[in-house]
């Protein structure tokens, strides 16, 4: 790939205390595609994802070395402005966590903290983003109800709308469907497929079938090492590494 990628990881090592969670990872995440990170539990998938927006900073005893270039800027540099880095990426977590406020305020939260004040402008943003995440029809008559009253599936779509409202370039999903029912999961997957023209999407999943359904590009992690990465078709149909083949066939998990 010749074009410049949003996210470029170089020799990334992450340690929790003495335990090394990620070992010398180097990879480029392709733009405007869905990249799926797969691998067995505890292999470092989530750590890698959380390194991208520096949520790992918030944990105890974490040390990261190497570089993660986002738009050419090394975000692991202590001088990097963490607020700006995070603004570039929307995050969907395993279980949706709406903020303790109304549906409207959830979506308006990001724009407000980044300086949008006008009522009219906020109204437009909220409507646009809720439509973008296919939630508008279900909530348009109760925008000022507490977000906690929505169903879990609706909450996850709200979290998507909330993330999109800060106009990120990248969407990160940390097993974003693991708390959802099959129907809601499918809607989120569908959403990702629609959004990939405009956003770079990175999703962690432990569901292989899901990875096959949505992935354009795949990273396979095992025990903190990046074993193999490449276009989805290659990884799923013709993996080069024995470990990858075993994982995809389901003999290791």
């Amino acid at each position: 790939m010749e074009f410049k990628n949003h996210i470029c990881v170089q020799n990334l090592n992450v340690y929790y205390g003495k335990v090394q969670a990620l070992k010398n990872i180097s990879v480029e995440i392709p733009d405007k595609k869905i990249t799926v990170i797969i691998g067995p539990s505890g292999c470092g998938k989530t750590t890698l994802l959380k390194s991208f927006n520096r949520l790992i900073d918030l944990m105890d005893n974490v040390k990261a070395t190497g570089k993660i270039l986002v738009d050419g800027e090394d975000i692991l540099d202590p001088k990097a402005e963490v607020v700006d880095i995070r603004k570039k990426m929307g995050l969907l977590s395993q279980k949706p966590y709406p903020l303790p406020m109304s549906i409207y305020d959830n979506v308006a939260y990001g724009p407000r903290i980044h300086g949008t004040k006008g009522r009219k402008e906020l109204d437009q943003i909220v409507e646009y983003r809720l439509k973008e995440s296919s939630l508008w029809e279900e909530v348009k008559d109760r925008l000022h109800d507490p977000a906690s009253r929505l169903s879990v599936g609706q909450q996850q779509r709200l979290c998507l709308a909330r993330g999109l409202a800060v106009e990120p370039e990248i969407i990160l999903g940390d097993e974003p469907t693991s708390a959802l029912d099959p129907n809601s999961s499918q809607r989120i997957e569908q959403k990702f497929l629609e959004l990939k023209d405009r956003y770079t999407i990175v999703v962690v999943t432990h569901i292989l079938r899901q990875a096959k359904r949505i992935a354009d590009y795949v990273l396979f992690l095992y025990m903190g090492e990046l074993i193999e990465h490449g276009p989805a078709r290659e990884i799923f149909e013709n993996p080069k590494q024995k470990l990858t083949r075993e994982y995809i066939q389901g003999s290791i998990s």
Partner: peptide
């Protein structure tokens, strides 16, 4: 912690997270 992470990942500062999310 995940709730605070949700706020951080929208680009809020600790102060904003404290007063707009944690306090509420």
């Amino acid at each position: 912690q995940e709730l605070m992470n949700a706020s951080y990942s929208l680009g809020s500062t600790r102060w904003e997270t404290a007063f707009k999310v944690v306090v509420r």
